[in-house]
Design a protein around this nucleic acid. Structure first.
Lengths: 148, 148
DNA sequence: TTTGATGTAACTATGCTTGTTACATCGAAG
DNA sequence: CTTCGATGTAACAAGCATAGTTACATCAAA
């Protein structure tokens, strides 16, 4: 395990907002969200800021400030969330430039870039098939079940 | 950029071994490989150790020691390499356990685990379609071409 | 004008990654 | 059976990313 948890936090935030939004359409504060995620409100706001730039949520200021979903949960796919975070690819190229005097050292980076770009495409296509509404439904599915 | 480069290094190693193995089937040392990758031989040996445990390469000791591919390059897929490295999933769950008193906090982890496991499956299926031989061919494809 | 939350900068603790040194172990060659 | 070069692994350091935290300027509705 080494990857970051920003996608997880982002999906958690949106899923929570989708659930709360079912009852009341009022803005929710980063503080309340942080209570569910169990982290600092600033961490929540940092991620909401990115989601906001991509039009997935909107922020309100002044009295009764907070955040609201900019679209219905069924119109937000995990690919939208992934793209909004703007993370790089899952696999890094060499830390140091490989030996350019070697045919493999010279050609491997373009070749691997193609492989990794293709992977990212597959990943995003797959993520596009699940919406926040789907995640919410799956999240609520087993509230009281215990596995033996 | 935050991910590690171990998959890149591993593919580089195997691709280089495939190229060298075309001429001579002799074992190659981690030192020579490190010259192409441009890193320390210990980094190479660490990764070769993992590949060895999964039967992708074999090591020889004593005089004329070194490493050889255990299979022809066309029989080694990138999925084999990925699995041999035994890396965790690309996306981490929450650093801190979410609030279990909240329905979303309680159910989100299993839901996301399913999403991430499914993603990993798609990823590995896609990786299985490319072999070391493919990567080598693509690596050697454009030896002298310059892009404008 | 007051008030409460946003939005962001700055700093810290922690952990992962990569590079490096060191060294015990091995096994074929001579 | 000794030599010799490479494996295999432990241990440590530097650099970097992540997540958490404090602080504070900014904003807008009441």
């Amino acid at each position: 395990m080494s990857a970051n948890s920003r996608l997880t936090i982002a999906i958690h935030i949106l899923t929570w907002m989708a659930l709360v939004g079912r009852k009341r359409p009022d803005p929710v504060t980063s503080n309340r969200i942080a209570l569910s995620v169990n982290t600092n409100p600033v961490v929540i706001r940092r991620i909401l800021g990115r989601l906001s730039k991509k039009g997935l949520v909107r922020s309100h200021r002044g009295a009764n400030a907070g955040w609201v979903l900019a679209k219905p949960p069924r119109a937000i796919t995990l690919r939208d969330v992934y793209d909004a975070l703007g993370e790089g690819p899952s696999f890094a190229l060499h830390a140091a430039t490989p030996n350019q005097a070697c045919p493999v050292g010279r050609g491997i980076r373009p070749a691997l870039t193609r492989v990794y770009d293709s992977l990212d495409g597959v990943l995003r296509t797959h993520l596009a098939r699940t919406t926040i509404e789907d995640v919410l439904a799956d999240t609520l599915r087993r509230p009281n079940l215990k596995r033996t």
